[in-house]
Amino acid sequence: MDLFSRSWAALRTAVAELPDEDFARPSGCTGWLVRDLVCHLIIDAQDVLITLVTPADTEPTRDALSYWHVAATPPAGDDPLDALTVRLAAAYEQPWLLRFHLDDVGSAAGRAAGLADPAARVSTRDEVLTAGDYLTAYVLEWTLHHLDLVAHLPAADGPPAEGLARSRRMLEKIAGAAFPASFSDADALLVGTGRRAPTAAEDAELAELAGKLPLVLG
């Protein structure tokens, strides 16, 4: 629960500190500018709020790892929902409006997470999880999107080290194998989820794991 809060606070702070011109730069998400990614974060924050107030009275059907659906190919950026996000982001017109909305809804999502009972059961995407597992899954979400945010912004702060380490362990469990020790946590996440291709040397180190990649999470 604490790691969710720290990861989410760090991501929101990184957005808040971006100069206006950075919102028009590319993000690490194919087809999305930084402003589109920030709009997606607003939608994510709304999803967190909705899920935490959607109780379930049945046994959990997913945990923090099985919450994720794994595809074999990265999105091409032409999915209708992705396109809708781009149109919504453009409707904000000014970066300060995106910052304001993310701070408003994002702060509420953070407070709701802090008040949640980790053992409580919640429902989302027609599945049931404990609130603790749901928020743990979102540590990976926030960390990956923090990497997306700063992909082309070398002056921006990246995700917290503890979030990177936890997210790497989660991705390794999803993959069923560990990344080479020579990979930094950030590189393991970027290569593992298809956000960048491995170098020839990295590909050789990955060995059999290379055949399982990328792990595209959705």
Rank of each mutant, 00 (worst) to 15 (best):
E141W: 02
T136Y: 00
R111S: 13
T136C: 05
Y138S: 01
L135T: 06
L129T: 10
L140F: 05
L147Q: 08
Y134I: 01
P154D: 08
E127D: 11
T130K: 05
V105G: 12
A113N: 11
A116C: 03
G114R: 10
A109I: 04
W142Y: 07
G106I: 08
D126E: 13
T130N: 09
D148C: 04
H152A: 12
Y138E: 03
G110M: 09
Y138F: 03
L144G: 09
L115D: 15
D117Q: 12
A108T: 13
V139I: 07
H152D: 14
D148E: 03
W142Q: 13
T130I: 00
L153F: 04
L140H: 01
A108W: 04
D126F: 06
H152Y: 12
V150H: 03
D117I: 15
V105H: 04
R125I: 00
A137W: 06
L135P: 04
T124M: 03
D133I: 02
V139M: 14
L115H: 06
A131G: 11
A113P: 04
A108K: 06
S107Q: 14
D126Y: 09
V105Y: 05
L129Q: 05
S107W: 08
G106M: 09
E127N: 06
D148H: 09
H152I: 05
A109T: 15
G132R: 09
R121H: 15
D133K: 00
L129D: 10
S123I: 12
R121S: 01
H145F: 05
A151K: 11
A131F: 07
R125V: 06
S123P: 00
W142K: 09
T136G: 01
A113C: 08
E127Q: 10
G114V: 07
D117E: 14
V150T: 13
A109V: 05
H145I: 05
R125E: 12
H146G: 11
L140N: 00
P154W: 11
E141A: 10
L140C: 08
L129V: 06
V122E: 10
D133V: 07
A109H: 06
A151Y: 08
T130Y: 13
S107V: 10
L149W: 01
P154T: 05
A116F: 03
P118V: 00
V105D: 14
L144N: 07
E141I: 02
L115W: 11
L147H: 07
G106C: 09
T143P: 07
D126W: 02
Y138T: 00
H145L: 06
P118W: 15
V122A: 01
Y134F: 14
Y134R: 05
T136P: 03
S123A: 15
D126R: 13
A119V: 09
H145D: 02
G132S: 15
A137C: 07
D133S: 05
V139P: 04
R121D: 01
S123K: 13
L135M: 07
S107C: 14
A113R: 06
A113W: 06
G132H: 02
W142H: 14
S123G: 03
A120T: 11
L140T: 10
A131K: 07
V150E: 00
H145R: 03
L147I: 06
R121Q: 10
A131P: 01
A151E: 10
